[in-house]
Design a protein around this nucleic acid. Sequence first.
DNA 1: GGACGAATACTCGGATATTGTATGTCCGAGTCTCAAAGG
DNA 2: CCTTTGAGACTCGGACATACAATATCCGAGTATTCGTCC
Lengths: 158, 158
Amino acid sequence: MRMGEGVEWGLHCCVTLGWLDDAAPVSIRRLAAWFDLPQEYLKKRLQPLARAGILASSPGVRGGWSLARPPGEISVMEVVTALEGPLEAFRCTEIRQRGIGGRDAGREFDGPCGISGMMRRAELAWRRELAGRTIADLMGDAPEGAARTRRNYSRLTD
Amino acid sequence: MRMGEGVEWGLHCCVTLGWLDDAAPVSIRRLAAWFDLPQEYLKKRLQPLARAGILASSPGVRGGWSLARPPGEISVMEVVTALEGPLEAFRCTEIRQRGIGGRDAGREFDGPCGISGMMRRAELAWRRELAGRTIADLMGDAPEGAARTRRNYSRLTD
DNA sequence: GGACGAATACTCGGATATTGTATGTCCGAGTCTCAAAGG
DNA sequence: CCTTTGAGACTCGGACATACAATATCCGAGTATTCGTCC
């Protein structure tokens, strides 16, 4: 089981945009140079964040990407869901109903599968953790980040 | 993010073997027919469970698969770890250190990444849920399962 | 009747397709900004 | 000075190519059981 690296990219971009604060939108070219990431693919990963109302993208020559909301109102869970999709990691395919073992079960299979239920509970605990933390929390975890980001960004004239 | 279906297969096999209780080992052919799964691939997925000391496999003409321990002593977390590997779903690649944004960070990057830390906490909550439940719990979730399993298994002479 | 050997039915582990998803690249279309040209 | 027009910079969305992991199959080797054969 593996989470796509787009999640790491998206979260770092959100934190960086939060640190840059009220500055003008950041173009995808600058963002890619910022983290040394493939420009085209990073763009593809940020688009779902815009669709989810987490980032805002503005076209035109002065356009670029910015946070659509204050960092304290963007939960980490939202970012993960936007990038990984809403589906759960464990997907019950009801193999209990197939084959010889599932014969003559009567009403036994009316309810949901116990294995599926316990997996759902575990993922719920995971989601609860992520839902309780915001981009602002992540920004606060690295207090020197804001200064470094603004300092380095001012040098980034290309 | 998606969990391999081997986890579903493995858990159902464990529960079924638990319901069959002290019966003789079950051959891979019967197990595959039980859930209507591809025999060769199911075997490949059960082998890591044997390596992890969860299942026991015995060779020979009367051989087959059985639980290596009482169902109450096999946690769901063990099964998942054996099948999905010990690595976490989120893997920090330290993109904060790359590119222009990571320059002149001084000692700021000595500690672990805040994003990585919060992901680790979330996965810990997930793991804790799974570690607290055992195969015996899953067996108990479907009280009629034991009777149905033994009934259907007795018909399975092929 | 007991010892021995062959046949059988399994598992084990590795090698090898096949498929699907994540990753990465490219291009045309649309939109906003800015500046230059013309009235 | 004001309006219009065109060029440039950027995003959007889809189409396409590639890399890699999940899925699936196959085969040779080993092992325990069973059964027949021979002494």
